[in-house]
């Protein structure tokens, strides 16, 4: 893989929660405009790694990081890096849908508003295309000003995706976005991920291997804080090089 192809990368990244080391010497390159899945058993550090990319770990007390995290070739932990802009350009969808307790419209318009969009017409357009892109428009078009808390779990999650799209990120991080959803809602989100990769780089954490196989182009397998193996999804699942990976994807543990 060439440098030009990767949008995100880490170099010898280690992360500690106090004395507890959660990530061990991880070097990875996330390819641009592809879907990359991070798989591995619970507690292997995949969510932690994901949260490194938009520096959301900054909010946790006692976190210490070593190594480099690169976004478009620049270290995001550099003091000169603007974390607010970073998060504008790297969106995130969380495990549990977390819409704001306001209307559907205001949820989606929130991001553009904080970034200075005031024009009503522009906001309307952004809200509409974002909801369309998140495959939610048809379901909520007639009740945009109802509370987002009244949506179903799957709808809330797609709303959170629409909210992320409305900011115009280049990368979308997804932290087990379907783990709180039923199979139908899950398949809707998966279809959505497939559509998104045309324009976005998606990094998705999942502990559902079928999901990783279905949606991703590249897969990284993590175990006990280490990145054991990284490569095209088909190869990881059909012809893994590492014994550990093989055991995991064939369901022998995990």
């Amino acid at each position: 893989m060439q440098d030009d192809d990767s949008i995100l990368a880490t170099e010898h990244l280690s992360l500690y929660y106090g004395d507890n080391q959660a990530l061990r010497d991880i070097s990875v390159r996330i390819p641009r405009n592809r879907v990359t899945a991070l798989i591995g058993p619970s507690g292997c550090g995949k969510s932690t790694l994901l949260r490194c990319f938009n520096r959301l770990n900054d909010l946790i007390e006692g976190v210490r990081i070593e190594g480099r995290i690169l976004f478009e070739g620049r270290d995001i932990r550099d003091p000169g890096c603007d974390v607010v802009e970073l998060r504008k350009r790297i969106g995130m969808v969380f495990q549990k849908p977390n819409p704001f307790p306001s209307s559907i419209y205001d949820n989606v318009a929130y991001g553009p508003r904080v970034h200075g969009v005031r024009n009503r017409g522009a906001l309307d357009a952004i809200v509409r295309v974002s909801l369309e892109a998140a495959a939610l428009w048809d379901e909520v078009a007639d009740r945009l000003h109802d509370s987002a808390m009244g949506l179903s779990g799957g709808q809330q999650q797609r709303l959170c995706i629409a909210r992320t799209l409305a900011v115009g990120p280049g990368v979308i991080l997804m932290d087990e976005p379907c783990s709180a959803l039923d199979p139908i809602a899950t398949s809707k989100i998966e279809n959505l991920i497939n559509d998104l990769k045309e324009h976005y780089t998606v990094v998705i954490v999942t502990h559902n291997m079928q999901q990783a196989a279905r949606v991703s182009d590249f897969t990284g397998f993590m175990y006990l804080g280490r990145l054991i193996e990284f490569g095209p999804t088909a190869r990881i699942f059909e012809n893994p090089r590492e014994e550990l990976t093989n055991n995991y994807v064939t369901g022998r543990f995990g």
Binding site: N54, R87, F100, H115, V167
Partner: peptide, 15 residues
């Protein structure tokens, strides 16, 4: 106010 709401906003690049 749940922490998830704050994270949701920060993740959108709000200050």
């Amino acid at each position: 106010i749940p922490a998830g709401v704050r994270e949701g906003s920060l993740a959108l690049g709000a200050t």
